[in-house]
Write a protein that binds this DNA or RNA. Structure first.
Lengths: 214, 214, 214, 214
DNA sequence: AATGAATGAGACTTCATTCAT
DNA sequence: TATGAATGAAGTCTCATTCAT
């Protein structure tokens, strides 16, 4: 096995000392990131296998080689974008728990579009793609369930702590809160000039406090 | 002149004696409706000009003939679906005004998916398409602005009537309420088994009353 | 029959008092002229029936109505362009006969491109079209024969007048002279900056005089 | 590694063991040759990408794959046909220089149509295509300039050798001689029965000698 | 006579996919 | 492992042509 640093045709240099498995993993990840960029710019249907390979600095044929079919790539890509988004969201609101953690997570949610617009665009493209692309629908359904349940857990913690009214339906509120977050950002994506996310976030949080606390 | 209904090659029955303008208008409308069906089933990118023509009972080439390019069809289709959705929504909540009218409109909104699932799917496909398709983005941006403004007007009416608190930001609430409606339905579309729209609607309305009324 | 001046859909006014045959003839002629313009701009294959009708100020369907098929239009158009060109050429060199008439006709030939560039472009498009379009080949073959024979007649007149050498092959010279004229203009059409037609014409005539006269 | 000639799906025999670059180069060349055949038969506008691929023994999609667009194929094809024609013409008149070389080249020119009718037809189709196809016009403009300059060089050599009159305009004569050659063949292409190229060639050369020599 | 609605064939082009190297 | 050559299936779009008005 050749171990010296070597020039690959795509023009990228890669580190020596990798095993083939490591190289493969990196190539897959770079292809997924390139694909995520394409999604952010042109939507989910704009992806072509060749373009994803070329943007990642590899050959136009490599995505086919790794992901076999376009559907498999889309499926992996949906999961990758969702995971990346979730990881970022959680990192930004790390440590916060209970109802206060929920409020903090909501604040973070309204800040992410300005911080990471491409990631958010890609994420919403995945949400949109769930409507039609079976390879993605399952991922999004699971995401929705998890996310709404997390929100509901924050509310339940608030109830248990005696801070929130106990006639609240935490599951329904979980869905509604998630809906408001997503729907707000969806409007911002279409018309960022008109939608003031900071103002929306502040209003939403004070609305929640008024409707949920005792 | 032949006046009896006659069979034409496309398989549709049409009345004789139409003017050419009438024939053309009907053909355009039928093509748009067929295209909306396709959108509801397979999403915005699933449309092909040929399929739209064939489903409408015409030739595969007619949509090209009328709409010139696919983009032009998409643009017209986005406007058509939005108009149809709005017309239906308003018809269902006719006569209600003020803050009560807003609450009624919200109730209607949560009922529409069960009443007209295809229309709602098509509508949400348009919303999703706005992310990537410039021809649609403008339509959706206008729709969002109008819709949020209508909601805000209902809130302003409630404030003026002394029923709602006067420290509310009606515009922000308009966006947030629209967001919650859209986001709820988006989750239902992905997993209708899990999302109970009736329950969501009831929770949302009581939440609103608690957060907005004096 | 309505005789008053009337507005037609194309936007053109036409004179009253025509018979239908006259109106039809005018419409045909206007369609042919519009088609000739298209040929001059975009070549022989750029013609579409609809475009010819629209440019002539009529409906897009009228050329079909008159000329039945595209081939029939092309055939009529080839003849029309050739006739127009010949008429112009003869008008410009009217009255000249014999060998001097030939020289005058040659001078005129080199002047026409600057005087009537569109006509000359269309004419050369017809010549080019003869290579592939059977509907035109016959017209051009006849034209070539006639033109070369006319040139030969001028030479024969010069011989008979004792002005030209009598060992000349008039028919071969007819073809060669026609070839030089056409070939010169063909080069000018491709690169009018580089080809100085006036200089070419002067050189050609003095060359001819030296090679043909006693 | 398999080395024996093997039958591939397109119906052509190819050797195994080629590098990919060799395979591609051969495929491109064969597609261009097939396209040149089509041009010779049906003119420049008769080319379709699919037909070029099929005639070359490949799939109907390959020309698109290589040449991207039809215009790019036409452009490459124009250059290819011109190069092939020039190479043949020069090979046939190899070694001849000066004014005698020019006369020999002219003799060869009048012989080529009978020797290589398809090549000559294709070549004249390119000349004709320059009138309307920008992708070809540049190639033909360069060709015309080069060819006329070569002829002029032969005349200048004759003047320098004291064999031709020194009041000749070599550049104008270069254009005129090229014009006569092209124009003669153009007439032959339309009506080969009537045009006797051998006789034309003999007449043209004796005419030239009379008009150019001292 | 004239318009223009509608059809259908054919071309270009893009890609997923397979396969040779 | 990785490249890229080659195929073939759609899809868009343009037009000649037919036909109802």
């Amino acid at each position: 096995m050749r171990r010296a640093a070597q020039r690959v045709s795509g023009g990228a240099f890669r580190q020596a000392g990798r095993t083939q498995a490591e190289r493969r993993d990196e190539a897959e990840r770079r292809i997924l990131e390139a694909a995520a960029d394409i999604v952010a710019e042109g939507g989910f249907e704009a992806i072509t296998l060749a373009e994803a390979g070329a943007r990642a600095g590899y050959s136009r044929g490599l995505p086919s080689h790794y992901f076999r079919t376009r559907d498999d790539l889309l499926s992996a890509l949906g999961a990758y974008i969702v995971e990346t988004f979730q990881a970022r969201r959680r990192a930004n609101a790390a440590g916060a728990t209970g109802f206060d953690g929920l409020l903090e997570a909501i604040r973070v949610y309204f800040e992410m579009p300005l911080d990471r617009p491409n990631m958010v665009r890609a994420f919403h493209a995945v949400l949109a793609g769930a409507l039609n692309t079976p390879a993605i629908a399952a991922t999004v359904a699971r995401l929705n369930h998890t996310s709404a349940t997390e929100v509901a857990a924050g509310i339940r913690a608030g109830i248990a702590a005696g801070r929130l009214r106990d006639d609240i339906d935490p599951d329904a509120q979980g869905v509604l809160i998630l809906a408001a977050l997503r729907g707000s950002i969806a409007q911002w994506l279409v018309d960022p000039e008109r939608i003031d996310l900071e103002r929306l976030g502040a209003n939403f949080i004070s609305t929640l406090e008024r409707s949920l606390t005792k």
